[in-house]
Design a protein around this nucleic acid. Structure first.
Lengths: 253, 253
DNA sequence: ATTTATATTTTCGTTTATGTTCGTTTTGGG
DNA sequence: CCCAAAACGAACATAAACGAAAATATAAAT
């Protein structure tokens, strides 16, 4: 087995077990420890792992994890959330979906909805929904960010401003205890804010891990959300706030 | 077993197992590793696989979802035309590519150009060029037409109007004897006209079969084109006109 | 039967991945 | 603090994989 096949597998193991050991990996793959060391060094240089004596661990939480890694994270939870969210979206509706792996999961669940109109600034969502012949797709233009397939920039914001949809399905990078939705990208925040303003209903899809993370830019508050779909029970304090705000919380067990 | 049967089967195996190994395939099909290598290289050139040392994997990134096996007419001719056209496009340039399988072929040939800025209203072109990390991609928004991956409508025209590019690479549905470029879609005609007006140079890519076809809407005349890339010699009358107009005709034999 | 075109194998010089060796750094127990 | 064991990275050696091109085989057309 060559490097190219080994390195993703190392990442996979790291994700599953939290850390990897040089000796262990060498034995597992049947190569020398030096080869593993080289792999770990390269993965660390690429920012996918953090090197420690004797092995490597997942990078610590300050920075944004790469998109491909995020896609694999919490996959089942995202699929569950997406399924419930998609059920709440009626047929014959107009929908907006923004950037993020969670919204992509929703798009996957919408592949058999009939007579949809979908607006998106996520080229992956467009690709996914293209297989649904009963769905009209409007792509908001912009600069393609290949890290996550997002379309961003002034062009995007201008395009989004032209639509009013029945349901906006929004993902976010992080959620804090006050109920604020956070994101890493300021431009994407603008796009999300615009669409929240223009949507008749707003759904938030975010798995529980989003509560463990931090991000610099505020998109909105849960107050502005109609329904929040997640996988883990929400802390009591925030749950009370949501009740007060009229934000419905749906836990997708 | 010949190439034609082998390559789809390689894809099939790759989809099932996530990756393929040169040695393994050579044994499976009873051919030499060199033959397999050539298959993999061709499949990688076509964007269906990603070559790695020792084998190949499914392409990663934004392009891997929803790929269709639509194989165009005159594929080799288009590839030849595209190759010559791509050579005429310098690195560090801004390029526009419109809808059509011919322009998609050009996009495929541009995957190794450096420091490009590509503007397109064709989602397939965006997907293809996404694999070129040295290429910034701007997607003109609009309604996704799933028959050909085109983005059409007012949104598209408005977006395109905002750009001025070094080279516009244009495809068309048909070419008549007077040297007029024709298309089926009036909206797409608008988009093409806009971009021709705004480009410093305009290249037309069209294989010889376009002379046998008819379409209702006039995009422009060959008079407005700087260089016309095609595969078959052009009729004498039209050739004379092109000389008069200063339109360079390149026959890609 | 002969030519032509296409697919495949053979050959060879080059690149890339892995293994080996060795001196240096880190770690954890006296 | 010191020392031994483990882990480390750099440098080099080797084997595998690679692409290009020439040679050969196969199939189709004349």
């Amino acid at each position: 087995m060559s490097q190219t096949f080994r390195q993703p597998e190392i990442l996979e193991i790291a994700r599953r077990e939290g850390r990897v050991l040089v000796e262990d990996l060498a034995e597992r793959f049947g190569v020398t420890v030096q080869t593993i060391r080289r792999d770990l060094t390269e993965l660390a240089d690429a920012g996918r792992l953090e090197r420690v004596h004797g092995g490597a661990v997942l990078p610590s939480g300050v920075s944004n994890i790469g998109y491909e890694d995020r896609r694999g994270l919490n996959e089942e939870a995202k699929a569950r959330i997406a399924q419930v969210c998609a059920q709440a979206i009626p047929e014959n509706a107009s929908v907006f979906l923004n950037i993020g792996t969670s919204t992509e999961a929703v798009a996957r669940e919408l592949r058999h909805h009939r007579n949809l109109l979908a607006v998106t600034n996520n080229i992956n969502v467009a690709n996914i929904l293209a297989s649904n012949s009963e769905c009209d797709i409007i792509v908001a233009g912009g600069v393609l960010r290949r890290s996550d397939g997002g379309l961003v920039g002034d062009l995007t914001a201008a395009a989004i401003a032209q639509f009013k949809v029945d349901v906006a399905v929004i993902g976010c990078s992080a959620l804090d205890g006050d109920g604020d939705l956070l994101d890493f990208d300021v431009q994407e925040v603008k796009a999300s804010q615009t669409i929240i303003r223009q949507a008749r209903k707003t759904y938030l899809v975010a798995d529980g891990s989003k509560f463990q993370r931090q991000a610099p830019a505020v998109i909105a508050s849960l107050r502005d959300i109609d329904t929040f779909f997640t996988d883990l029970p929400v802390a009591a304090g925030l749950r009370a706030k949501c009740r007060e705000w009229g934000t419905q919380v749906v836990v997708c067990g």
